[in-house]
Simulated assay, not measured.
Amino acid sequence: MNKLLTALPLLLLAACASQPPGATADGAAAAGSAAAADAGSEWQALRAKYMDCTQKKANDNLSAKGHSKDVADLALSACQPELDAMHNAFRSYLDAQMSSSHGKSSARQAAARVTSDTRDKARNYLVRYVERERYLARQN
């Protein structure tokens, strides 16, 4: 996670540096900023949708036999299309910011890393969530 926090500002700095000359005209910059904001919020909304999906799928399988990790893995598998949509939206968002081939390569790496980190974060959360919910169900 620390690597992501370090890499993201560097990617944004590279994005700013890789803009072609003359691309900062007021009208183009305003239109570009609005489009970038929409794309930026799109992938974040898809990330939230993925996290909601995983929690719903885990809730559906709370009573299933097996370890909490197994329930979490089932939920992650069921929500893979949502994760793929988030990955594609984030990659498109970063690709739009990059003009050099090096920048586009960095965008691919960053999208893969964010996707992996999101999946890992969801897995860790779900395992604890399932354990907690099962514990509470036994208490009642």
Rank of each mutant, 00 (worst) to 15 (best):
L136H: 06
Y135K: 12
K69W: 00
S101D: 14
A37Y: 07
Y93M: 07
L74C: 05
G22Y: 09
R119K: 15
Y129W: 09
K3M: 12
Q109G: 14
F90V: 03
A45K: 09
D26A: 15
H87W: 05
A85L: 10
G66P: 01
A35L: 15
A72L: 01
L136I: 11
D73C: 00
N59R: 10
Y93N: 07
E82P: 03
A45F: 08
L8S: 13
A48E: 10
A34N: 14
Q19N: 09
H102G: 10
G103E: 03
V114S: 07
E131W: 02
V71E: 00
S18A: 15
K69T: 00
G103H: 06
A75K: 03
N59I: 00
G22V: 13
S116R: 12
R108P: 11
M51L: 14
A15F: 12
A137I: 00
S63W: 00
D117I: 11
A39E: 14
R47D: 13
L62N: 04
R132D: 07
A72S: 09
A23I: 11
L94T: 02
M86A: 11
K69E: 08
K104A: 06
R47P: 02
L74D: 10
L136T: 02
F90Q: 09
Y129A: 08
D38F: 07
A96H: 08
V71M: 00
S101W: 12
R138D: 07
S33C: 15
R108H: 15
M98K: 05
L4A: 11
D38Y: 10
M1P: 13
A31G: 04
D95C: 01
A31W: 04
L94D: 04
A78S: 14
A48I: 03
A31K: 08
D26R: 11
A78K: 13
S33A: 15
S68W: 02
A39Q: 10
A29I: 04
D60L: 13
A29Q: 15
K65P: 04
D52K: 09
A45Q: 12
S68T: 07
S33N: 14
Q44R: 15
S106D: 13
A107M: 02
K56T: 11
L126A: 08
T118C: 08
R128Q: 00
L10Y: 06
A75Q: 02
R123Y: 08
L12D: 07
A64G: 05
L76Q: 02
S100N: 05
K56V: 06
